[in-house]
Amino acid sequence: MTLRVLGFGIAREIFGAGIIQIDVEENISAGALKKFLETKFPTLKNLSSYRIAINTEFAETDDKITSEDEVAILPAVSGG
């Protein structure tokens, strides 16, 4: 399936764009998506941490993603 993934902060810079489009297996899990992205963008592995959000909620590793979902890559936050 084709998935649109939002990137913020340093993830946006690593992607080279605020939104990227990728082709992944149907119903990919958040954990598997991380692995996929780390293959495509190895510098993600240098980050202190990053989380995946599905439809504006922090995702667990096993959470499944469909092509309808809004998926975002959230590096360690640093607001305030």
């Binding site: 902060g9 340093i10 360690a76 640093s78």
Partner: peptide, 24 residues
């Protein structure tokens, strides 16, 4: 807020810039 709200800051110096907390 500092732990869980998805907001990021970049510090810009005279000689470079850093996304705060991004790297270990």
């Amino acid at each position: 807020l500092k732990q869980n709200v998805p907001i990021w800051k970049k510090e810009v110096y005279e000689d470079g810039e850093i996304w705060v907390a991004a790297h270990p």
